[in-house]
Amino acid sequence: MTEDLQRRIAYALYLENWSFENGSRAGLLKDAETVEPSDYSKDMKGHLFCPRCFTNLSRVPHDKDHSTSSMEAHFKHLPTYRHIGCMLRSTQGSGKKYSSIESVSQAIDNEELVIINSFMQDKPEQRVVGGARPFDEAQIEDVDGPESEVPLGQHDGQTFKVPSKITSLRGICRNFDKNYYRYYFLPGNQHAIALTMLLNDARKVTEEDDKPKLYFVKLQKSTHHGNPPGPTNIRMTFLEKSPHVIDFCIKTQHRLQNDHGIGDDTEGRYALVYSSVTSNGIGLCFKNLGWGEIALIPEKYNYLIEDVYNAAHS
């Protein structure tokens, strides 16, 4: 176990009067407050839990921002639970396997596992709340999909028939902290993988890729093309990119990005995109996106995206 892995616990779940041995995991996920190391106070001691394995965490150091070796404060697992496997503590593979259909169903019921059949291609019916702007409107974020035969078993070739969702990245981003360590089975994958392990950094992309993946991107200049500008004109939103790529952009009709709040004033913001990577002149782009395949991440969750980036470059 390395210090880098320990420090990848980006936040703890804080809930008084809950215990790993007797508490409901669904209740913890629903009621707990998310706490970063910098938000910690001494009265939280004994009430902090891992967002992935749900065992107790401690904050090191307990009463200051840096240790005697100048290491920043961070969360770590307690030795008492060293026998409980956790992707945030060990070097085990990121894929999650299950022993029975009952264990899969329980994980789905506890909202620890989401089976995604596909992402929405068309905009769902809107439910406008007050005077909200388009990307603040309450939307239908997922609908029930067909039962899917998925290879989630511990043994090679073992599959389970389970209910799935047709969902949107907007739904994942809305409660990004709750979803950050949740396991997702994406279309075409062979394992359920934690969201934090599914996120690919677009700044590391250097060539076309036919296989759709889940990317996080940092937005730069965005331009609405066409004269006069209109909803069906192209909007090109450029991304922070690899130095080996001339340019990299999201290239869609203006109305799609506008629906998700992406436009002239979103430079510096993070977004999620589920897409293949195609050429665009001498550069690269994400294009032909469905409505559910792009979403702006609320700024309050920037620390989680930056945690993924820093972990990948540690």
Rank of each mutant, 00 (worst) to 15 (best):
C285A: 15
A10V: 07
H254Y: 14
A312L: 13
A107F: 03
V143N: 04
R82A: 13
I305H: 02
I250D: 05
V128S: 08
Y181I: 05
H83F: 11
T232C: 01
S69P: 00
F54P: 03
S275P: 06
I172G: 04
Q158M: 12
L78G: 09
S41E: 14
L272K: 02
S279K: 15
C249F: 01
P134K: 06
F54L: 10
K165N: 11
H77V: 04
A192E: 03
N110G: 00
S38Q: 13
T252I: 05
K97Y: 10
S118P: 00
I108G: 02
A132Q: 07
Y11L: 09
P37L: 04
P163A: 07
S118G: 05
I297A: 04
I108K: 01
T223P: 01
G230R: 02
I193F: 08
Q139L: 13
I101Y: 01
E102W: 01
F54D: 05
N280D: 15
I166N: 06
P79R: 10
D65H: 08
H66T: 13
A138F: 06
T223G: 00
V273Y: 03
A312K: 13
S222F: 01
I116L: 12
T159G: 07
M44T: 05
K178H: 13
N310E: 14
V150M: 06
V277E: 03
K287S: 15
H244R: 14
D209T: 06
Q257A: 13
F54Q: 10
C173V: 15
S168W: 02
T2Q: 12
S19K: 06
M236L: 10
L78T: 13
V104G: 01
Y309L: 08
P212V: 05
I250N: 05
T223F: 11
S314T: 10
